[in-house]
């Protein structure tokens, strides 16, 4: 599929195509939306199953759900403090959505919705707006003192305030681009090396032996991609908590 006319086609895996026939086409329901719904259903299902059982000695699913819960609850408690408990559902939802998006994308024939900048940018904007709303609700007008640190000389204000505002807005870009770039780079590398396997495999007698090298690289890359899938969901969640800490404590 990736080899058409002996060229490397690593980007067509990110193309959107409508799902569910005529109805899906009419409402532009792409496979990206389908996998988002699947990620929501799977993460909600995991939590429902593990919460309903409530056994003292958990079975595997319950242990998985409790491990995820404890992981994020501990992160929010460490980063935001006790006031952060009420924001735990938000951070946990974002984490599970990104994590399932990354992991589902590693299955063969699956689509990685976190590899689209539109999706990650929307997630980052939601985080940014939530954090800003939290800061405004907790501190009111005092929030704007965030852009001018106490004790700085007043004549520096024309420089410090624009720089702080740009720095504040750059959170959206860095949060979205980090996730997007990691997922795209990983999937492009997987596809490129998979194409090498096919191209080199057709080189006659030596083909299978030469093709084993990119195949070995791909095996290592798949393992690496699982690490990246976890790590990027973790980084997204912990940066959300750090921003929440800034919003709650303001300086």
């Amino acid at each position: 599929m990736a080899v058409e006319g002996k060229t490397i086609d690593a980007l067509s895996q990110f193309e959107l195509s409508p799902m569910f026939g005529v109805v899906g086409k009419a409402v532009s329901f792409s496979q990206s939306n389908g996998f988002m719904l699947l990620a929501v259903a799977l993460s909600a299902g995991l939590m429902l199953v593990s919460a309903r059982r409530g056994a003292l000695v958990p079975d595997r699913l319950q242990a998985l759900g409790e491990a995820a819960y404890e992981f994020i609850a501990g992160m929010v408690r460490d980063q935001v403090g006790d006031e952060g408990k009420k924001y735990f559902p938000f951070v946990f939802s974002v984490f599970m959505f990104v994590l399932f998006g990354n992991l589902l994308g590693l299955l063969p024939y699956a689509f990685t919705f976190t590899s689209h900048i539109a999706v990650t940018l929307a997630l980052a904007v939601v985080v940014f707006l939530t954090v800003t709303a939290v800061a405004l609700m907790r501190h009111g007008w005092h929030f704007f003192s965030y852009f001018f640190p106490e004790g700085a000389p007043v004549w520096l204000a024309p420089i410090i305030i624009p720089v702080e505002i740009i720095s504040y807005f750059s959170r959206v870009v860095s949060l979205s681009v980090r996730l997007f770039a990691n997922m795209v780079a990983g999937h492009v590398m997987l596809k490129v090396f998979a194409t090498f396997v096919v191209l080199l495999g057709g080189l006659g007698a030596v083909g299978p032996f030469v093709a084993a090298m990119p195949l070995a690289v791909n095996v290592a890359l798949v393992g690496f991609e699982f690490l990246v899938a976890f790590l990027q969901a973790y980084v997204f969640a912990i940066l959300t908590s750090i921003y929440l800490h800034d919003a709650v404590h303001l300086h």
Binding site: I166, F169, R171, V172, V173, S174, V177, R178
Partner: peptide, 9 residues
């Protein structure tokens, strides 16, 4: 990432 995103903004 931090440098580039601040520059972009």
């Amino acid at each position: 990432v931090e440098v580039v995103s601040a520059l972009v903004v």
